[in-house]
Design a protein around this nucleic acid. Structure first.
Lengths: 175, 175
DNA sequence: GCGAAATCGTTACGTTCAATAACAATTTGC
DNA sequence: GCAAATTGTTATTGAACGTAACGATTTCGC
């Protein structure tokens, strides 16, 4: 678990592979997520589900699952847990094959408490990067997954580097 | 699996959380890893183990496991697989409780073939970032896990940003 | 309309990954 | 020399993720 790089070990090409650095960083943040949310007993996937339901009330299960890249078969148990904890609920939909998903009042209250906790957890863990470092990191990560920048981008210098700066590539983060 | 962001869905705070972007990027690279190495039937953890053994021949199991943040109980099966494929071997060590680990000739040959494949896989997937973008990304990721820069750093501008650049923080990547 | 095909949620199942507990063999410390 | 620690191992558990199949319902082609 604690996979800090051990001194005296030669990691060879692993030091150059971004995939490896990515995995390590992800494990690191994952662990700190649990540390930060220990009082709430919530997992990252559960938080993501609650967020999507909260912001898009009335979606059906398969839509929420698809939005998060979760197989709908695996989503069943995930939602069962949230529903039995009284955080989300399945309501009857027009299409009687499906359910429309909503947060309960309790679910919304939890999210109001959880959001600042998670923001603080990230600030805590990423303090060393600085504001611009954080912006850079998230922009780079989005490029890795081939996403465009979310609209909300202020027109401030967004990914300009001191040297080797590249014009935005066709088909990716455009204007 | 294919967790591209769906249009028409409001992801709320998830768009701001680096942990979420990190997980998505990691899944993305993980999948491309398998695509790139399909002909070799090797998994990321196996590659990491082979790398550490190759660069540090003679280490004992617990040392390799610790270097990669793997529990030694889980390392047993991992190494069993590599050994039964003839890629690595356990040799008797002075301390008769332990084994000294080495690559076989076949293991070394595989690594010679695998390294360029993985470099190409990363270049392919990260082409959109540019050289400086890749350097930046790996530097930022290392900071997330609280590591110092590996020595090999050329004195070229290493993490300077156009604005909001911060002096290197005490205890992290100092010059 | 009506029957075939698709969609939706669900169950059952298998695989992989990571964690804990316990144990035998061996080495180390006092 | 004997208690304590280390090393590799097994057994077992739980979580995460995938596939196959099914019943209920809706949609599509005609």
């Amino acid at each position: 678990m604690s996979q800090s790089r051990k001194p005296g070990i030669d990691y060879g090409i692993l030091t150059e592979l971004i995939g490896y650095a990515l995995r390590r960083a992800q494990v690191h943040m994952y662990q700190d997520f649990f540390r930060a949310t220990a009082a709430f007993d919530i997992r990252p996937a559960q938080f993501a589900v609650l967020t999507v339901i909260e912001r898009n009330p009335g979606l059906k299960q398969s839509e929420v699952a698809a939005a998060l890249g979760i197989k709908r078969t695996n989503f069943v148990g995930l939602l069962d847990a949230l529903e039995s904890r009284g955080l989300a609920e399945r309501r009857a939909a027009r299409d009687r094959r499906s359910y429309a998903l909503y947060l309960t009042a309790e679910g919304e209250a939890l999210m109001r408490k959880l959001r600042p906790v998670l923001k603080a957890h990230e600030e805590h863990l990423l303090a060393g990067l600085g504001d611009e470092g954080r912006r850079q990191l998230i922009a780079l990560l989005r490029r890795v997954t081939g996403e465009a920048e979310p609209d909300g981008g202020a027109p401030r210098s967004r990914l300009r580097l001191v040297k080797d700066a590249r014009p935005p590539r066709a088909g990716s983060a455009g204007t």
